[in-house]
Design a protein around this nucleic acid. Structure first.
Length: 472
RNA sequence: GUCCCGUUCGUCUAGAGGCCUAGGACACCAGCCUUUCACGUUGGCAGCACGGGUUCGAAUCCCGUACGGGACGCCA
């Protein structure tokens, strides 16, 4: 165990926080918490063309919603450009890097030639040992790493194990662009070093980068942090998660009515396991999380399992907390304002009262609100197909009997209405279901709902009887 | 194409040579419970990619094949 663990989540602000990034953040957060360390947040915005303030905001918003916190202020990588350039120049001064004047055309040529020969694309090192005095006029150079040409580069990855590359497969990468800005490779190494990062936990799409970054660490004379390359999350079709495959931002999951705790639980089990345990409180996750139990193969995203977990979390949730989550969801969903408005006053009271019955029957907050629609509906209700079928001639006849029985009830409650309907069932010989279903249809406009006597109680005597008479 | 990584039920996974007649969860199917739907509960279906080794013994170790994925930028 390390005395003080420092992890970091380092997204590039070119879009929202997608689900894979969310899991990477979660793993970093858990690992830091588990070891009593810190998780830093670094915005990798050195790509000035594609980085946007909106994306930064979306990422931060996403992390907050997911309940993942970081220590200190977010670090903006671009702000450290001067430091990066300094590291690059120092490397040149010490002979570990050099100026390269090759043009884009020359590079393209090299790439095509390599492809034609079936070799990996690599810069041929034409400026590696050339005298900068022979540089063509007017060409601004880049700084490239003078990478070792012989031997191997090896990393001891905490998830992938020992991984080695032949140095002959790795070329002299660019550290500093011709405009003086750092490349990702340089910036990452310099920042992780300067920030005191002890553990780099990131997607395994960075595995090959790890080799090149290791070479930079070596050139700088810095010890490389521990690394853990976690497998990616794939779409349902097994291919890389892309926008086309529904690589949604975490805020999309909020809008779909998932609870952050459920999403965290789902995400942590993608690639990580603790025996047969499926449901983890946040405390348990922190207590048990370990890189040792992270697998090496990619996982597919499965909405069915997420929904199942979400249902479990919803059923366990406190009614008021659920209401708060619903309001947060509505604030982020199109057309949510209208429902939000309906949740003032009476509507709010009704929803809260009906919550135990509703949360039992929904897997997402959206489903829950769908099932709650009848609470806000105005008379006369429009019936859906199944409800209409329940109120055929026979159904209406029974409904009339039920109405008569209920009209006799004065102290309106779950118990009293149930007693009245049960008594009717006994005296007429009708099964309870034969009375309850028409009742449900008339009261809710649907064939399914929470317990019908609960509905009666929540709606109240006047509204209930009104809705029933509307259907006679 | 080159390099790297992977492959246990449809999906997520347990499994560190005998405890495996391969376990759990989701999904699916059937039964029970029941005023509907859910919940709960009982049972069922279903998997070690393939081929060679090593070993008394392999899902577990080694090699190969196939398939999948990732990376090959003056993007991150």
């Amino acid at each position: 165990m390390h005395p003080s663990v420092v992890t970091r989540f380092a997204p590039s602000p070119t879009g929202f926080l997608h689900i894979g990034g969310g899991r990477t953040a979660l793993f970093n957060w858990l690992y830091a918490k588990r070891h009593g360390g810190k998780m830093l947040l670094r915005i990798e915005d050195t790509d000035r063309e594609r980085s946007t303030p909106e994306a930064i905001e979306a990422i931060i918003d996403g992390l907050k919603w997911l309940g993942l916190t970081w220590d200190g202020e977010p670090i903006h990588q671009f702000a450290r450009a001067a430091r990066h350039a300094e590291v690059a120049r120092d490397l040149v001064a010490r002979g570990h890097a050099y100026f390269c004047y090759a043009t884009q055309e020359e590079l393209t040529e090299m790439r095509e030639k390599a492809r034609a020969e079936g070799k990996p694309m690599r810069y041929d090192g034409r400026w590696r040992d050339r005298d900068p005095a022979t540089a063509p006029p007017g060409v601004k150079p880049v700084i490239r790493l003078r990478a070792p040409v012989e031997g191997e580069t090896m990393i001891e990855d905490m998830v992938q194990g020992k991984v080695t590359w032949s140095n002959s497969d790795l070329d002299d990468l660019v550290l500093l662009r011709s405009d003086g800005t750092p490349t990702y490779m340089l910036a990452v190494v310099a920042d992780d070093h300067d920030m005191g990062v002890t553990h780099i936990i990131r997607g395994d799409d960075h595995l090959t980068n790890a080799a090149r970054q290791t070479q930079i660490y070596q050139a700088c004379g810095w010890p490389a942090p521990n690394m853990a390359h976690i497998p990616l999350i794939h779409g349902p079709d097994g291919a890389k998660l892309s926008k086309r495959h529904g690589a949604l931002g975490v805020e999309a999951y909020r809008a779909m009515g998932y609870l952050p705790a459920a999403l965290r639980n789902y995400l942590v089990r993608l690639g990580w396991s603790h025996g047969d345990q499926e449901v983890f409180s946040t405390e348990e996750m922190v207590q048990f999380f370990d890189l040792k139990n992270v697998g090496r193969s990619a996982a597919r995203f499965d909405f069915a399992k997420l929904s199942n977990l979400n249902g479990i979390y919803m059923r366990q949730a406190d009614d008021r907390a659920l209401l708060a989550a619903i309001e947060e969801m509505l604030a982020h969903v199109e057309g949510g304002e209208a429902t939000l408005k309906a949740l003032q006053g009476e509507g709010r009271t009704r929803l809260l009262a009906m919550m135990p019955g509703l949360k039992e029957r929904a897997k997402t907050l959206v489903e829950l609100m769908d099932g709650a629609r009848f609470l806000f509906a105005k008379r006369p209700l429009t019936l859906d197909e199944k409800a209409a079928a329940l109120l055929d001639d026979d159904g209406r006849k029974r409904l009339a009997e039920v109405v008569a029985a209920l009209e006799a009830v004065s102290d309106w409650s779950v118990a009293s209405t149930e007693a009245a309907v049960r008594a009717l069932s006994e005296s007429t010989g009708a099964k309870l279901g034969q009375l309850a279903q028409p009742l449900r249809a008339a009261l809710t406009g649907q064939a399914t709902s929470p317990g019908i006597f609960d509905v009666l109680a929540v709606l109240g005597r006047e509204e209930s009887l009104g809705r029933l008479r509307d259907q006679l």
